[in-house]
Amino acid sequence: MLKRICRTGALCGILAATLALGVAAPAAADGSVNVYSYRQPYLIKPLLDAFTNETGIQVNVIFAKKGLEERIRIEGRNSPADLLLSTDIGRLDATKQMGITQSVESDVLHDSIPAKYRDPEGHWFGLTTRARVVYASRERVPQDAITYEELADPKWKGRICTRSGQHDYTIGLVASLIAHNGEEATRDWLKKVKNNLAVKPAGNDRAQVKNIFGGLCDISLGNTYYMGQMMTNEKEPEQKDWAASVHILFPNTEGRGTHVNMSGMVMAKNAPNRENAVRLMEFLASDEAQHIYAGVNYEYPVNPEVEPSDLVKSWGDFKADDLPLIEVAKYRKRASELVDEVAFDDGPGS
């Protein structure tokens, strides 16, 4: 039947999404809310189950690794999506620039989420934060403090590993450096860090820690929550050994603070269940949900009244950069251009 009804790729996508969610588009479905998510189902299920238990509102989720923003845009007024859960300020702000979000006014969200972690116009809101830190070999790096700027020092030549310069996490850090230090200083920093790399950028943040464990490099850049994932990985217990071989250094803690990014949420422009979606957004910012979310994800609660999990606290205290993430988003395009201009991903010696 779906074959007979579909006449265009966009229409097929709309119908497929509608059938997957089990709701009628575009009509609102009483007692439900529809979520498109980049966060993996097992990470958000405890939160959504708690919300349903508290409110009786059913949460329907579609998970994907990419393409959800474009999907919402193509679906247009017929989209069943109420909320999009995403990661990184770049992705969150991009949804606003695409015109697929709507503003949300909520005293609960304003009181729970600091201004630096929400859009001034109410189009996106942070849920958890993660610090972009330095993983350092316990055996070969005795120092207990570092700055991002220090990574350009020749003493680190052949000792640094990192993922692609064009990955969202790296671009966010580079954008923050532009905001703090200016474009020319950041270009020079990228050149020098590139020359200090042990190998060409490749792999994810955990792969860099594996490289440290194997002696390929001594330090790497990574997000804090990967430490939690490695320390508790029962399916691949070798990752526990990787984690044990490093300690976390929070850069610039004695100065402007460590760069942080976030996971967050946006309200879809044509949300068919807006009232329920606002209730879910407010729940996700609540003390209860923040405890659950941060504990499951090994991230930091965005709500300053909620403490991190004991495991996360064991990594030490740090000062977070006060730079509003809207400022980071402003420099992301230029950050990406600078990464290409210095051919960062070509690696050392190129």
Rank of each mutant, 00 (worst) to 15 (best):
L2E: 07
K3G: 14
K3V: 14
K3A: 15
C6N: 09
C6M: 07
L15F: 08
A16W: 13
L19Q: 12
L19H: 13
A20L: 09
A25D: 09
V33C: 11
V33Q: 08
N34D: 08
R39V: 09
Q40N: 15
Q40E: 15
P41I: 02
Y42G: 10
A50S: 13
F51N: 05
N60E: 03
V61A: 12
K65D: 14
L68Q: 09
R71P: 01
I72E: 10
E75A: 15
E75H: 15
E75N: 15
S79D: 03
A81I: 00
L85Y: 03
D88E: 12
G90S: 14
G90M: 12
K96L: 03
Q97A: 14
G99F: 03
E105D: 14
L109W: 06
H110E: 00
I113H: 10
Y117R: 15
R118E: 00
G122N: 01
W124K: 05
W124D: 11
F125Q: 11
A136D: 02
E139S: 06
R140F: 10
P142E: 13
E149G: 04
P154E: 07
K157Y: 01
I160L: 05
C161E: 10
R163Q: 13
D168L: 11
Y169G: 14
I171S: 12
G172Y: 09
S176A: 15
I178H: 13
A179R: 11
H180R: 13
H180K: 14
K191D: 03
L197F: 01
K200N: 03
N204S: 06
N211F: 07
L216K: 12
D218V: 06
D218C: 03
D218Q: 13
I219D: 00
Q229R: 11
T232E: 09
E234G: 09
P237Y: 12
D241F: 05
F250S: 02
E254R: 15
H259K: 01
H259Q: 11
G264M: 06
M265V: 15
M267V: 00
M267Q: 04
N273A: 04
E275A: 14
R279F: 07
M281T: 01
E282N: 10
E282G: 11
F283L: 07
S286M: 10
S286W: 08
D287P: 00
D287F: 01
E288I: 08
Q290P: 04
H291L: 13
Y300M: 14
E305R: 10
P308Y: 04
V312F: 11
S314K: 11
G316Q: 00
G316E: 02
E327F: 00
E327L: 04
V328Q: 12
K330F: 09
K333I: 00
V342A: 14
D345A: 06
D346T: 07
D346Q: 10
G347K: 12
G347H: 01
